[in-house]
C-alpha cells in the first residue's frame, strides 16, 4: 500500500527582504513600485544587500530610502552619479547603486551621468524614464515624446520650441567606459522579466569590475499623462516604445555574446586593449567598515 506524501510547501514568491512593508507615496498605477521590487530581488539574489550603498535622486523616487532597506545617500538634483563616484572611490567593497528619474538624469544631471559613465565608474544606474516631471506636477521633460501634452507643453511638445526627446541610454552606450546598457519596460510581465535580467546583468558588471552599467526602465505616469493606469500601460506599449526601442544597447562585459537585439555585444573599447576589463582596485580608504 502506497501512501501519498503531500508535497512540502514551496515558496514561489515572496516580498524581498529589503523591500519594506509600507505603503508608498506613489500614485496609484505608478511603475516605481515594480522597479523597486526588481532591484530588491536582484540585489538579494546576488547577495550584495549588506554592502549596498544606494544614492537617491530628487523627484518622485526621492523617498526610495523608505522603501528599500539599504544604506542611502541623498543627492542634489541630478548629482547622483557624482555622489556615487565619491562613495565608490572610498568604499571599493561596497555595491553602489543609483536610482534616478529622467528629469534628474537626462536634464539637470547630464554632466554627471556622462562623466561617471566615461570614467567607467563601477556603478549600476537605474534610470526610470516616464517622460515627465512627475513630482512637480507633470511638466515636460527632455524625454517627453514629440507632441505629448504636459503642463509646460500644453499644446504638445513642439520640436521647434522644445527640440526632440533625448535618447540618453543610446548616448551613453557609445562610451567605452560603459560595460552594459539596456532599455526595459514595465508594460507587461514578459517585459518586466526581461528588465529584471537587464538589471541583473548591470549589477554583475559592477561586481565583476567591468565598468559602468545602466538600465533604462520605461515606466508610466498615469497622473502626469492624464490617463488611467490601464491607458498609461497601453500608451507605454504602443507609443512610448516607438521612440525608445527596448533591448540591450551595448554589452561589453567579458563573455558577452554578439547579436542580442542588435546590440554592440562585446564591442571594442577605443583606447583600451581588446577585451580589457577594469579590475576593482582595492582602495585602502574603504577597507574599514
Amino acid at each position: 500500500m502506497t501512501a501519498t506524501v503531500p508535497a512540502a510547501p514551496r515558496v514561489i514568491y515572496q516580498r524581498p527582504a529589503r523591500l519594506t512593508d509600507v505603503s508608498t507615496r506613489y500614485c496609484p498605477g505608478c511603475g516605481h513600485g515594480i522597479i523597486h521590487r526588481l532591484v530588491a530581488e536582484v540585489l538579494e539574489d546576488l547577495g550584495v544587500d549588506g554592502r549596498t550603498i544606494a544614492v537617491a535622486p530628487v523627484g518622485c523616487s526621492v523617498f526610495a530610502y523608505e522603501y528599500l532597506a539599504y544604506d542611502w545617500c541623498e543627492a542634489p538634483h541630478g548629482r547622483a552619479p557624482a555622489v556615487a563616484t565619491g562613495i565608490r572611490r572610498v568604499r571599493p567593497d561596497a555595491f553602489v547603486l543609483t536610482y534616478q528619474g529622467d528629469g534628474d538624469l537626462a536634464a539637470i544631471g547630464t554632466g554627471e551621468i556622462v562623466h561617471a559613465a566615461a570614467r567607467g565608474e563601477l556603478i549600476t544606474a537605474i534610470f526610470v524614464n516616464n517622460g515627465i516631471y512627475g513630482m512637480t506636477g507633470g511638466q515636460m521633460a527632455p524625454t517627453t515624446l514629440v507632441g505629448q501634452r504636459t503642463t509646460s507643453s500644453p499644446t504638445g511638445r513642439d520640436v521647434r520650441a522644445a527640440g526632440y526627446p533625448v535618447p540618453m541610454t543610446e548616448m551613453l552606450a557609445v562610451l567605452p567606459g560603459v560595460a552594459f546598457a539596456a532599455r526595459g519596460s514595465i508594460a507587461d510581465p514578459s517585459a518586466i522579466g526581461r528588465t529584471k535580467s537587464y538589471i541583473r546583468k548591470a549589477c554583475e558588471a559592477q561586481i565583476r569590475g567591468e565598468g559602468f552599467a545602466i538600465v533604462e526602465v520605461l515606466s508610466n505616469c498615469p497622473v502626469g499623462w492624464g490617463m488611467t493606469a490601464q491607458e498609461s500601460i497601453r500608451y507605454l506599449q504602443d507609443v512610448v516604445v516607438q521612440t525608445y526601442p527596448l533591448g540591450v544597447l551595448v554589452d561589453r562585459r567579458s563573455g558577452a555574446q554578439a547579436g542580442s537585439s542588435g546590440a554592440q555585444a562585446g564591442a571594442a573599447r577605443p583606447g583600451t586593449p581588446s577585451g580589457a576589463t577594469r579590475q576593482a582596485e582595492p582602495h585602502p580608504a574603504g577597507q574599514e567598515a
Binding site: 545617500c73 548629482r79 557624482a82 565619491g86 562613495i87 554632466g111 582602495h283
Partner: peptide, 24 residues
Amino acid sequence: RAFVQAESELGAINMALGAGAAGA
C-alpha cells in the same frame, strides 16, 4: 588614496558629498 579630477565643480563637490557620507 582617492583622487578624481571631476567634470566640473558640481561634480567635485558632490563626489565629496558621497565620500564624506561614506565616512571618508
